[in-house]
Design a protein around this nucleic acid. Sequence first.
DNA 1: CTTAAATCCGAATAATCTTCGTTTTTGCTC
DNA 2: GAGCAAAAACGAAGATTATTCGGATTTAAG
Lengths: 157, 157
Amino acid sequence: MNTLQKLDHIDRKVLEILQSNAKITNAQLSKEIGLSPAPTLERVKKLETSGIIQSYHAQLDREKVGLGVTTFVQITLVGHKKQVTDSFVEKINSIPEVVECHHITGSGDFLLKVISKDISSYQRLMLEKINEIEEVASTQTMVILSTFKESKVLPIP
Amino acid sequence: MNTLQKLDHIDRKVLEILQSNAKITNAQLSKEIGLSPAPTLERVKKLETSGIIQSYHAQLDREKVGLGVTTFVQITLVGHKKQVTDSFVEKINSIPEVVECHHITGSGDFLLKVISKDISSYQRLMLEKINEIEEVASTQTMVILSTFKESKVLPIP
DNA sequence: CTTAAATCCGAATAATCTTCGTTTTTGCTC
DNA sequence: GAGCAAAAACGAAGATTATTCGGATTTAAG
């Protein structure tokens, strides 16, 4: 499963470029990595079929689509049995406003990233959805005041 | 600046599709939204030039590129003067392993998302980089044990 | 060295995007 | 509702881009 050593420095460059600009043409990409279009495309295809590149996504301006509030919510569950977390995760997955859900160490069991229109719709979501989940014992919210970095490029070692 | 009411239900569908699959062809997209290719392209271009669609990114498999550890790090700074946070943010921006940096409410001043090869490289990053920043008073880390949801699709209201 | 496999190149073909003139729909105003 | 102007959508032609393929070059092992 270790697909590591198969990446040479050209592959890394391809990955770096596609992470920051997925819409680049193959011709342009080939210029930037110093190869001709044919082997460039072959490398990209190989990265896709091997699963190293999982998918491609458009990144939206949250403000412009009317989503002004992003929060991180720490969740403590009522217990730690498998059935409790499974049930919790299943319910979380059906809530579109929860865009991330991580099982974490430290205080609290889960950390959610929640995206809302405004504070009042955030409050409504918490009262009517999150806190209504029976497995949830308590929550603690961190509201994002401003975001200074949001990189889509991983630090490939 | 409120670019909200300009989005009809077709625009929303376009945004939803492009968020989950940016590599779809214009012809395929036009079928899915029930228009011909020409006005479909026109809509996408308009969404791009208006800045609602900011960019396009390839999503990688972190494990497969050798990045096994993701953490959230809460940072408390030594003060709250503008110069302190400015200096901190500037240093953070030069660290590729820090992929997100948010100014937050609640305990701690900032929340970082940090991506590392493994625990020991995470430890090295904290000791040699983060804790070396003079504005940092203390840190508290949450290690992600597993991720149950990581949606790239915003809940457009 | 020798050789086999892998990689890369260049050019032709296929697929897709993009433009443009025309037609249809939409939303007012009377 | 009827008429009309603006906006949106259509279809087909032209322009770009992706993709394929045979052959040349490089790489790595023996």
